[in-house]
Design a protein around this nucleic acid. Structure first.
Lengths: 221, 221
DNA sequence: GCGGCCATGCAGACTGCATGTAAGCCGTCG
DNA sequence: CGACGGCTTACATGCAGTCTGCATGGCCGC
């Protein structure tokens, strides 16, 4: 939301060439988000005090108030940054061909393994303390489940939805509304990420999770 | 935890015949839990103030402090009650044969449909504002994911684990560690419940969710 | 180009409310 | 009758959110 103002200014001036005043403001804002990201990930949303956050960011509480009137606004900004970073990592891990062309006739041998590879990449990208705590654990409670689901869908559901729709069109997924199935698949990935990250033996847990995922997602006809 | 003391006293005396003072204590405690259950479900854990809770329960904050030193202790008690009530409802919905004998040779036609029926019953039982908010949304953030998972597994994972193990033994589930797959299945049910409860059209959503669940869980070999 | 006005970004104190604490009372049970 | 458990009351502490003050950069009239 508050992004929009900077975007609006950016429409008039290139962000990098912003005047000194606005540049300082963006730096302060960035420092605040970075500090909050760290403290939120360490202690969780409610245990993280604004006093500590501004101390880490080396700004005052007044600056925080100016940029983020409510603590929840700050959390939202952190949430979006962590999410988009995770998606970026997942996209990188999935390989550059993730955005490549899609041959319909090669659906069963093409899109499905690719979707599975994307899911694994997503799973690995989500196995991070930041993502665990901010996105998967605190997110629903702080933002409310509905809003949380909307945001998570906005960021990560696109690929899965596309894969599911392709699968249904190609006939190797039972015909049905794509959205619910895609949501459930996304939730399974989230849960698998939490399982892996909280396991004593992450390597074994990751292998087990992938086997279980493959079991659930291999035959959807 | 605090339950144990009353259980210990119960071991010496029948709970119903407890002396007047202890009886009063248990009533206060029950009123506190009932009130907190209501307020937590309505506003969520953090928005619910102890002042409002004790007002609803018609006791003082001191009494609250005596029974539940920290707010988190109260939440845990509420959580456990909501959970166990939900399991009871699910067990009732699944029918009395849920605990019946298990014929090995009839595995594919016996235990699997029954497990699926259990899962549907669980899904329906979880479609309640109380469960949604207390157990599924606030639970992980308040208790921490690890503890939350442990509790949810303790209450609801038993049936699924048993079903999965039977499935593996009978050969219609791909051989693998049972626990991870069972956890993922449980998480899918939880997510489906959240989807259904938050949908504009719960009836359609429930049908879609069941189709999607069936798609994911029908062929696990 | 320069000097004054204005708004933005920020600083620091204040307030109200939340949970958690400590000391005292009172009835019941031993 | 003593004493302990259950409860009450008053207090302390720390939090997010609010308000006022300030100061510097940006803009416009001259």
């Amino acid at each position: 939301m508050t992004e929009m103002s900077s975007i609006a200014t950016g429409a008039r001036r290139p962000d990098s060439a912003a005047p000194a005043r606005a540049r300082q403001a963006r730096e302060t804002r960035a420092a605040l988000i970075a500090a909050a990201r760290q403290v939120f990930a360490e202690k969780g949303y409610h245990a993280a005090g604004t006093h500590e956050i501004v101390a880490v960011a080396k700004v005052t509480r007044g600056a925080l108030q100016h940029h983020f009137p409510r603590k929840e606004d700050l959390f939202l900004a952190v949430f979006e940054q962590v999410q988009s970073d995770m998606i970026a990592r997942a996209a990188q891990g999935a390989g550059p061909d993730a955005q490549g062309p899609d041959v319909e006739g090669d659906a069963e041998r093409g899109t499905w393994p690719r979707l599975k590879a994307d899911l694994i990449a997503y799973l690995q990208a989500a196995t991070t303390p930041e993502v665990q705590r901010v996105v998967l654990t605190d997110g629903p409670a702080v933002l409310g489940w509905t809003e949380w689901r909307r945001l998570e869908a906005y960021y990560g559901l696109g690929i899965i939805m596309a894969g599911v729709e392709h699968g249904i069109a190609a006939g190797f997924i039972r015909p049905q509304p794509a959205a619910p199935l895609a949501h459930l698949i996304l939730s399974v990935i989230d849960e698998a990420a939490l399982m892996v990250a909280n396991a004593q033996d992450p390597v074994t847990a990751m292998r087990d999770a992938q086997v279980a995922l493959d079991t659930m997602l291999s035959h959807l006809a």
